[in-house]
Design a binder for these strands. Structure first.
Lengths: 338, 338
DNA sequence: TTGTATGCGTTATCAT
DNA sequence: ATGATAACGCATACAA
């Protein structure tokens, strides 16, 4: 027996010598149907191991009840955890989810959105790739009136629904915490400069400095992608300044981990020589020595809200873009206390 | 303007007053077509922003060129990294990938496989959930002759293609390494007992003991799910034995991280009091203090091989199950050296 | 309660 | 080079 072609309602109808519509109705549990026929159909379907073809269903129904999720990567807890939360919320609403990773590539982002569109996803939840320097692909979605929500990696250049945290305020709190713990010379290892989220956090950093009477010095700010190699180089540069910083704010735990590694190699003590605060509060933070102080984002809530905003667009006839701004908590651990 | 229904080849045909078949041919770049008509069609398609409906294509073609990947979770580097590697290999072969996470639940595994099946995926790459205690859902795939590859979390109860590492040997090497570094009383924090992978590693652990003249003592072995709470309890129990272990083999970095955390709380020094070796070599291993010795699995290679085995089944008419066993490397770091 | 006919968007076979 | 028509698997309006 070769790759057997799947059994269809037609096959069932043929065997039972009835019409496909009757089979279709029975299988979907429609009311107006004779118990006997219904039972016969259900029994045979079971025996033949009938599986409905979702493609066909979706095609005729012109609905897929599927939402597409675009992630920069799934190799970081923040995003994979968001995915979990989105999936759960979506499932509760009767939607299923398909995901893809852009690996921070604009091209892949564009291509994947296109693919999902062709596969008839009904809406998108997107966190932009690092090098998404233009937004034409997103604008197309908007023009096509495809429901859409951005989270975390958003941009102000688009009029869309977003779920974000108050990044400026979070960075302000984090930086103030460093200052209050005695840091005088602060450095910021930021993310890519064209990421709005990065700039917002940098703003908060600056404001904290000035509101505590400290001077902002550009030489103490560097922009990194999230790679380990790059980050280590930048961290080392920073510590080689004539007056090295005594406190560092990193904008992602990924950056922080590499930085701590670099400092450790050089025998620089955390928090004694340099205090550190970071963003994301990945589980790894608590496993490090010293454990890492980090800004927690309410991942579960972000997932729920993203789905909520999307459903709102999905289920009503278009609606104003809406922005949900959630609170963060600074989770204080050893790396910033002295 | 309301949620505009997508433009189809029919719409294009209508506007140009030609037949849909001509449009279809032009769009697919078939040869026998007049340059003028072709250009007109392409131009209009562009203008109307036509997007082919993949559902319809797949339905008529009776192919989706899609493979389904079932992961226990994506929140661990090993699996999310495998996903990357699978995606890359699949893409090269012209297949796309859809993923889902079972969250270690048998029920979700079963349901998700069913969903993907209904969505006409052509084959599966699966790593079994922790509590997949029966394999009937997998057996159905086999009976239906759906191409299938298991990786990492496999079982010997199924005759299917697998991509795994030599777990017994890896555990043997890891354990021997501990013994050679002076450990006399070894403990093993294993995974769930019904996971073949867990048992294989336990075998290797035992063999290493006996081949070094050490006694195997069941009290020094515990089985944990991968949760932090559970692991911490078990680690603490282990250290409360009359003669606590001076070396611990953990079967996953997730278990190791929690264990190290527990030991740190109790002021137990690693590696001085207890040396540690683990499995998976997640990036976090190098960030810990002490850095964690861990068994590396060739993730990229595992992904490539999984796809290769799947393609083999996909593209020929059924083939004998094949098992690929890959080598591991023990990456020695501070946690095991003394 | 059941069957017939039509359509979902696309490809493919056969004519023309 | 182009068009008409059937088909993919299923749902549904309408008839019977």
């Amino acid at each position: 027996m070769n790759k057997n072609t799947p059994v269809t309602i037609k096959d069932i109808a043929l065997v039972l010598n009835i019409s496909v519509s009757t089979v279709s109705r029975a299988l979907r549990g429609m009311p107006e149907i004779h118990p006997d026929t219904k039972n016969a159909i259900l029994k045979l379907a079971e025996e033949m191991d009938y599986q409905p073809n979702q493609l066909a269903k979706n095609l005729v129904g012109n609905r897929t009840k599927t939402i597409g999720v675009i992630m920069p990567t799934l190799s970081y807890y923040f995003f994979s955890s968001m995915l979990n939360s989105i999936e759960e919320a979506a499932m509760q609403a009767g939607y299923s989810v398909i995901v893809c990773q852009t690996n921070e590539s604009y091209l892949r982002e564009k291509a994947q959105i296109q693919n999902m569109l062709n596969s008839q996803v009904e809406g998108f939840i997107i966190s932009l790739a690092c090098d998404s320097y233009d937004y034409e692909h997103i604008n197309r979605l908007i023009r096509k009136q495809i429901p859409l929500v951005l989270f975390d990696r958003y941009t102000d250049k688009l009029e869309v629904s977003k779920v974000i945290v108050d990044n400026k305020q979070a960075a302000f709190k984090a930086t103030s915490h460093l200052i209050e713990n005695g840091c005088k010379k602060l450095s910021c290892l930021a993310g890519p400069p064209h990421l709005e989220i990065s700039n917002q956090r940098l703003e908060g950093f600056k404001e904290a400095l000035s509101s505590h009477g400290l001077l902002y010095d550009e030489r103490y700010v560097s922009h990194s992608d999230f790679t380990q190699e790059n980050t280590i180089i930048q961290a080392n540069n920073m510590m080689s300044l004539a007056v090295p910083p005594d406190g560092i704010l990193t904008m992602s735990d990924r950056i922080a981990f590499s930085t701590m590694y670099a400092l450790k190699q050089k025998g620089i003590k955390i928090p004694e020589d340099v205090a550190m605060v970071s963003f994301n509060n990945e589980p790894t933070c608590m496993y490090l020595t010293p454990s890492l102080t980090s800004v927690n984002q309410p991942i579960r809530e972000m997932g729920t809200q993203s789905v909520r905003l999307l459903l709102k667009q999905l289920e009503s006839d278009k609606i104003e873009p809406e922005t949900v701004i959630l609170d963060t908590q600074l989770v204080i651990r050893e790396s910033s206390l002295r």
